[in-house]
Amino acid sequence: MTTAKTIHLTLKVVRQTGPDQKSNLETYAARNVSTDMSFLEMLDVVNEDLTLAGQDPIAFDHDCREGICGMCGAVVNGRPHGPQEGTTLCQLHMRHFEDGDEVVIEPWRSRAFKVIKDLVVDRGAFDQIIQAGGYISINTGGAPDANSLPVPKEMADQAMDAAACIGCGACVAACPNASAMLFTGAKISQLALLPQGRPEAKRRAAAMVAAMDKLGFGNCTNERECEAVCPKNISIVHIARMNREFLKAGFF
């Protein structure tokens, strides 16, 4: 961690004007970057300068800037969401960089995530995986009293661990195979752990895995890069539970 107040950086940013265009690496100077800034604020300042200089600012997705919406994300110096463990890009602060650093910034790369512009990608595939079965089939109204079905605390806690997924896509970006198993596994696992989700656990696992396969993600080879970069520290234990649920669904 640097103690300097301001630092100068050289940014190398992958730019791409539109979905089917070629991308190229552009170099920008980021001068007088306050170390209290967040990474996205640093990009804001660079963008302000680019705009005033008559250039197209760097497009990047973001919204909450609190690490919870899952909108932001880029591969920074070879690592999704940058160098800090358990941290989204919006929560990464510039004090983790040193004066003079060169910073390479790239979009998530995966066949299933098309680049829209610069660092912005289309993660619609995640929505489709959820639509395939990432829910409990109940309609509004008519639910029994919330306390009518006790849920062991450790089950609820484990379900919450999985449910913490923010759907940012860093797992896919980090996976050497661009696989979406951590994302899919987290949802299947959350709902399989809760008694409310048990009735359709099998159907859900089969349907969600089938959807995931169709969307062009690669296949998990247990490289564990996903859990290493997950900003919510979601464990591959949930992939194992998905495998279990899927195999149960297939064979029994």
Partner: peptide, 18 residues
């Protein structure tokens, strides 16, 4: 898995899982 990422990264580091 080779085709799941048609466009490679300019810079990719392992994060400790691999």
């Amino acid at each position: 898995n080779l085709t799941a990422r048609p466009q490679r990264y300019e810079m990719k580091k392992n994060t400790g899982g691999r």
